[in-house]
Design a protein around this nucleic acid. Structure first.
Lengths: 114, 114
DNA sequence: TACTGGTACATAGTATCGCTGAGTAGTGAA
DNA sequence: TTCACTACTCAGCGATACTATGTACCAGTA
């Protein structure tokens, strides 16, 4: 997919992860595989963990440590009130951007047909 | 709009500018005002000029210097073949991302209604 | 003349964020 | 013991947008 997606994920990946956490707490490794399942095959593990540290420090999630049947204990993240607000703000920002870009996309196509 | 949009623009602003240039060459100052008109009110002039330098160095645009009636000469940028290809790649990447995020958005709304 | 404001471009320094690459550790199966 | 999967951590890097500032040209006006 090239390098474009890397830059495009900046600012959106956080929202994507917050959205994944809506209603269903999850731990880092689980989130990574969820992302891979959804088509983001190239997202590095390290990226996800770093992001989780960030949103925890921003106070957007609550963390609970739980033992795992296999492997080290898990850190389970769940969206709190502040995280929910941040997610809503994310959707507003995303919609703003997406609307304008889609508009450019359609006018581009019309130009192209001339 | 906060800082979310700043991060979200990374990777998309270049595509936005390339799209603006489709079929109609433009110069930096003009592009800045175009962006402002389209709702991107907070984009700094410096950001646009830096981006234009970048896409010129990448060879995505052709540049022509033209005198202005008012003020210093303008640098008029026009999309070339390579730029057009880059823009097409941008649309593919954007569609990939937008589809997945919109899907998350809809499932989020459904979750929220429960 | 001096000043203001609009036009037009440029750039040094900073912060953010995702990626690379490597490492640590626990578990179970071959 | 070796491998593979699970699970988390971290140092260093590169790309990009923002801040702040500067240069320069022109027109109107007090």
């Amino acid at each position: 997919m090239g390098k474009q997606i890397t830059e495009m994920l900046k600012g959106t990946l956080e929202g994507i992860v917050l959205a994944l956490l809506t209603g269903k707490p999850a731990y880092g490794y689980e989130i990574t595989t969820l992302l891979r399942d959804q088509g983001f095959t190239d997202i590095a593990e390290g990226t996800v963990y770093a992001l989780l540290v960030r949103i925890e420090q921003k106070g957007l999630v609550d963390v609970e440590k739980r033992p795992s049947e296999k492997g080290p204990p898990r850190k389970v993240y769940s969206l709190n009130t502040q995280g929910t607000q941040e997610l809503e703000e994310f959707w507003r920002t995303w919609s703003f951007l997406a609307e304008r870009i889609e508009q450019l996309h359609s006018t581009d196509r019309i130009e192209g047909e001339k």
